[in-house]
Design a protein around this nucleic acid. Structure first.
Length: 495
RNA sequence: CGCGGGGUGGAGCAGCCCGGUAGCUCGGAUGGCUCAUAACCAUCAGGUCGCAGGUUCAAAUCCUGCCCCCGCAACCA
């Protein structure tokens, strides 16, 4: 058995419905997790929701309920999305969990040597109850466009975390990949960002400006800033600091995040960990955004794609397939219904589904469903394994499809249907045919193994069909054609 | 002069580091086959490899200048 592994996903802010970006987090983490489990490792897989902060409080007030009551009804949306994308998570954390809150306060105490009180000064809008950057203030000529009031110069007392003290250690860890930022260009971006050193970060707010959050220990006027609170989830969910077991899983092997939150995970999180005398995570996997028709997804444009809709129409495995292979693991990707449906029909249907069908069908027809001995096939798995290790899941799937194509080409070369014509009169032909078909089954079973992390249901179905040595009854074909968004070739001919 | 990535046949990409047949997937055309989900297999379609120079026997690949696009730079998944 392998060692214990730990993977995390960003915890989304629970003030909105989950979207495709969240789904991507869960999917990538789940692929990695299933792959590791397949290879005999024990994997702990964290997910959760971030439930503190002004936006939550404001939304709750708007609805006339308590903040906690509000998040109680919101977090389930995320949980159901995780389940819907098939994420086999092991731990679900809410930042309003009692243990998490207590642990954050414990962490605050432990970090005391690196915490000091300072003054934050900036442009404040009373209507927003929030500070604005110089740039924003300048762009609006000093007047808040939403409230038609001038920004006020306000200073407030904050606690600060002395992140600057850890600049050298953090930079060194990133540079030498002890905390590896994947992909490399994100690493370089971040190193450039901190070339003048890490900045100390404000980690609290006066209660009058932030009412809904973890109270700062021993200071009733201050509330813990949400990022410190949120980042801590990765260890509190393991039971840190008081429950047994967390040491077996920390440091995390992979932390999956979106590109927008890299600087918190590379600039605040490591100083926190170092202050707590904990190891840094081994890898940060930074994925990009999903565009729709090359445009940014946004509610106002109305081009938001709901992952639930995709899954409901095409099935879970089709969803996982497209977002794993056609949205590059480490960069932005593009979704359109046409692209999706094309990939579904051609790659899943014509390539994979069809080749499974044709092999199964030949065995049923020529050998009454008896497979014979499926030999261990000897395809080169290294490119696939390398891609998985490099966290380029899209490339790994490319490799699987090389095998799928290869099998179709193999069949075309040996022509089992030709051999079958003489098998009744030629004993050699019969055994040759059996050998060829068994060989094909061997390849399909291997393909199924490689698909386990990506298309668990499909992999399982393929196994079911062939594993007993006799072709099982098939419940229809694997990926039946769907033409909702693309022309149907069967009707096109008539035109 | 902020840092970085990129401009390759209709679309999306690889190749460039280690110069010398321009490759892959999808789409299109033709042919083959009939085991299969109107599928599969083969071949072809001939693209100034952003522009202009330079180095070289030879450059998509190295050097210089220019044009254009994008990411980060700013608490946008």
């Amino acid at each position: 058995m392998g060692k214990n592994l730990y993977i995390t996903t960003a915890i989304p802010y629970a003030n909105a419905k989950p979207h495709i970006g969240n789904a991507l987090d869960y999917l990538l983490a789940d692929i990695w997790s299933r792959y590791q489990k397949q290879n005999g490792h024990a994997v702990r897989f964290q997910v959760g929701t971030d439930e503190h902060g002004n936006k939550i409080a404001a939304k709750a007030a708007e609805l006339g309920v308590e903040p906690k009551a509000y998040t109680d009804q919101m977090y389930g949306n995320f949980q159901s999305l995780m389940n819907k994308v098939g994420a086999e998570y092991t731990d679900f954390v809410r930042t309003t969990d009692e243990h998490h809150v207590a642990a954050v306060q414990w962490i605050w105490q432990k970090l005391q040597p690196y915490i000091y009180k300072g003054t934050y000064e900036g442009w404040y809008c009373v209507g927003h109850e929030a500070f604005f950057t110089d740039k924003e203030v300048e762009a609006t000529s000093g007047v808040c466009p939403d409230h038609q009031k001038p920004y006020e110069r306000v200073s407030e007392e904050n606690y600060y975390l002395r992140a600057s003290a850890f600049t050298d250690k953090v930079r060194e860890a990133i540079t030498h990949n002890r905390m590896q930022i994947v992909p490399e260009f994100r690493k370089n971006e971040f190193l450039d960002l901190i070339k003048d050193g890490l900045k100390d970060v404000s980690i609290s707010r006066p209660r009058k400006h932030l009412s809904w959050g973890v109270p700062v220990p021993n200071d009733p006027d201050q509330v813990v800033y949400v990022w410190l609170d949120a980042l801590a989830n990765y260890i509190t969910v393991l039971g840190y600091p008081d429950q047994e077991g967390w040491r077996e899983f920390w440091p995390a092997d992979v932390q999956v995040i979106g590109k927008d939150i890299l600087r918190f995970h590379a600039g605040i999180w490591p100083p926190m960990l170092l202050g707590l005398e904990l190891s840094l995570p081994k890898k940060l996997l930074v994925h990009g955004f999903v565009n729709v028709g090359n445009a940014k997804m946004s509610k106002s444009v109305g081009n938001v794609v709901d992952p639930n809709e995709v899954i409901d129409q095409y099935g879970l495995d089709a969803f996982r397939y497209f977002f794993a292979r056609h949205i590059p693991t480490q960069d932005d990707g593009d979704f359109t219904w046409e692209k999706f449906e094309n990939a579904y029909n051609t790659e899943l249907g014509n390539d994979l589904g069809n080749v499974v069908q044709r092999v199964a069908s030949m065995i049923s027809r020529y050998q009454a469903g008896v497979i014979g001995d499926a030999p261990q096939t000897e395809h080169d798995m290294k490119p696939y394994r390398d891609a998985m290790y490099a966290l380029t899941f899209d490339i790994a799937l490319d490799e699987v499809w090389v095998m799928v194509r290869g099998l179709n080409q193999y069949l075309e070369t040996v022509k089992p249907w030709v051999i079958a014509k003489t098998k009744d009169t030629d004993a050699d032909a019969a055994s040759h045919l059996s050998e060829v078909l068994a060989q094909s089954v061997g390849t399909l079973l291997q393909i199924a193994d490689l698909l386990v992390p990506f298309l668990p249901d499909t992999a399982n179905k393929i196994h079911k069909i062939f594993e007993t040595g006799i072709i099982a009854d098939q419940q229809g074909v694997l990926f039946p054609k769907i033409h909702q968004h693309t022309p149907d070739p069967r009707t096109k001919k008539e035109a």
